[in-house]
Each structure stands twice: as C-alpha cells, then as structure tokens.
Computed example of a mutant assay.
Amino acid sequence: MSGAVAPEAMQSLVPHKGAMCLWDEVLAWDADSIRLATMRHRDVDHPLRSHGCLRAIHLCEYGAQAMAVHGGLRSGGQAAPGMLVSLRAVELSVDRIDDLPGAIECHAQLLVDGDSGWQYQFRICHGSDVLAEGRAAVMLQPAHEATPTMGPASQPEGTP
C-alpha cells in the first residue's frame, strides 16, 4: 500500500490525460498521504501556460491532481470522478513556476474522507522553498444510474 509509482502508471490513476496529467511520479504514499514530483512545470508546451509563463496559481491544480492520484491509488484503480469545490487558506510565495530549475514536489495529506467527498491539505515545494500550500475539497460525483429513455408507455398523452 505504499511506495513509489512508475511514471507510466500515473495516467491510469487520474482522469487527466496527456499533457494535462501534471505529475511525473509518486515518490511515496500510504492511506493518509502522498508525495509526488514533476518537471512538467518547465515544459514550454504546458497546457496551463499563458503569455509565455506558468503562474503560481496553477499550483492549486497540481494540489488537486495530487488528491486525484492518491484517490486512484487508494481505490486500486482510477480516482472517483469529482469536482474541485473549495480552496482554502492558499498561500503562494512566488509569481510563476516555469522558470524554476529542477523538480517540484508535493506532499498532500488526507484530512477528510467521506462518502461524498475528500478534503486534503497540500504543500508544494521546490527544494526547501515552499511555493504553495493550502487546503482543497472535492465533491465526488454520484454514480449515475442509467437514464430511462421515453418509450411509448412513458410519453405524455397526445404525443405520437
């Protein structure tokens, strides 16, 4: 239940594919936390880049994806689909991250694990420098039941 995860396995854990899968590797994880690393912030074709740079605010997406990777590992497959509904106490210490040499790392700690959602605390660092930290909450999407189609018996009166 703990240990590293190979980079090629990362995309099987989250709904994000291709360049939108922001983490390169899981360094360690257990039932309550995860530690990841990436160099993708340096990619000139990063999907979140605008006007030639990648803003620090996007570290919130890195934190949210850390949650999804952890959820996938905990479930033994892909993370349950969900929606980021809250960011709290987010502190950013830099303006941009694309100019940082070397890897950035995230440590995410599970705070609440409920049937309808998760809450995590995350901290993203570059070496010993904290780039971002905060809390994020995800509301899990309920499993969708098959939507019945309107057959002749369910059509309103007077319709063909």
Rank of each mutant, 00 (worst) to 15 (best):
M83A: 13
G102I: 10
G71D: 00
H70A: 04
D99V: 08
T147F: 07
V85L: 01
T147A: 12
C125L: 06
D129A: 14
G72P: 04
S93D: 04
P81N: 02
R123L: 08
V130P: 10
Q119I: 03
P148N: 02
D129Y: 04
L131D: 01
E133S: 12
G76E: 09
G134Q: 09
L84R: 07
V138I: 12
V69H: 05
L131N: 02
I124S: 01
D129F: 07
I124M: 00
Q109V: 13
L92Y: 10
V130E: 10
R74G: 09
V69C: 04
P148H: 03
G72V: 03
G127E: 05
S128H: 12
H107N: 13
W118R: 13
L92M: 10
S93E: 07
L140T: 00
A79V: 05
P101K: 05
I104E: 03
Y120H: 12
E91L: 13
A89Q: 14
R123P: 08
D113R: 05
R135N: 09
H70W: 00
P148Y: 01
G114L: 08
C125E: 11
P81Y: 00
V90T: 14
L100E: 12
S116D: 06
H107T: 14
C125P: 05
L140S: 00
T147G: 11
D99T: 14
L84K: 09
C125Y: 01
V90H: 10
M83Y: 09
L131R: 02
D99I: 06
G82E: 05
A89D: 15
R88M: 12
E133G: 13
R123M: 10
R88W: 09
V90S: 07
E91Y: 09
G82M: 08
H126Y: 00
L140D: 00
S116M: 06
V138M: 10
I124V: 00
A143L: 14
S128C: 07
E145K: 15
Y120C: 13
H144Q: 15
W118M: 06
S93M: 06
E91D: 13
V85Y: 02
P142D: 00
D115G: 14
R123Y: 03
H144G: 15
D113N: 05
G114N: 04
P101D: 12
R123G: 09
G82I: 07
H144R: 15
A137K: 02
I124W: 01
G117S: 05
Q121K: 04
D98E: 04
A146C: 10
S93H: 09
L84C: 09
H107V: 13
A103P: 11
A80I: 00
L110M: 05
G82C: 11
A89P: 08
H126V: 02
H126R: 08
G114E: 08
P101A: 11
L111P: 12
I97H: 01
A132L: 04
V138S: 03
Q141L: 15
H144L: 15
H126I: 02
S128M: 10
A108Q: 08
D115R: 14
P101M: 07
C106A: 13
M139N: 03
A79N: 02
A136Q: 05
L131T: 03
A103V: 12
E145D: 15
